[in-house]
Simulated scan of single mutants.
Amino acid sequence: MSVIVFGSINLDLVFPVSHLPAPGETVVGPLLRFEPGGKGANQAVAAARDGARVALAGAVGRDPLAEHALSGLRSAGVDLARLAFVDAPTGCAAIGVDAEGRNQILVAAGANRAARASQVADQDLGPRTVLLLQGECDLGETAALAQRACDRGARVVLNLAPFIALPRETLAAASVLVVNETEAAALAAQLGLAAEALAIARTLGTAVVVTLGAEGAVLVDAGAEVRVPALPVPVVDTTGAGDALCGVLAAGLARGLALPAALRRAVVAASLACTRPGAQAGLPSAAEIDAALTGAFTAR
Rank of each mutant, 00 (worst) to 15 (best):
V248P: 01
C246D: 08
A244G: 05
V236I: 13
A230E: 05
A217K: 09
R255Y: 10
T206M: 11
V220I: 15
G223W: 07
R264T: 15
V210N: 04
A251I: 08
G213K: 11
A222M: 15
A217F: 14
A261Q: 14
P232Y: 06
T206V: 14
R255E: 15
V235F: 05
A241R: 01
T206Y: 12
L253C: 08
P234Q: 07
E215C: 10
P232A: 11
A262E: 07
G216L: 10
A244W: 00
A262N: 05
A262W: 03
L219N: 01
A251S: 13
L257S: 15
R265Y: 01
L231G: 13
V267C: 04
V233Y: 06
P234Y: 04
P232M: 03
G213H: 09
L231T: 13
A258Q: 15
A262Q: 03
V209W: 01
P232G: 03
A266Q: 06
A261I: 04
A262M: 03
P234A: 13
V248H: 04
L257P: 14
T238Q: 14
D243V: 07
V210K: 05
E215M: 14
L212K: 11
L231V: 15
G240L: 03
V233C: 09
L219G: 01
D221K: 06
L249A: 06
E225T: 12
C246N: 12
R227G: 15
L253K: 04
G213S: 13
R265Q: 12
A224D: 14
A250I: 01
D243P: 07
V235H: 02
G213C: 11
A214E: 15
R264S: 12
V267Y: 00
P229H: 08
P232V: 12
V208W: 04
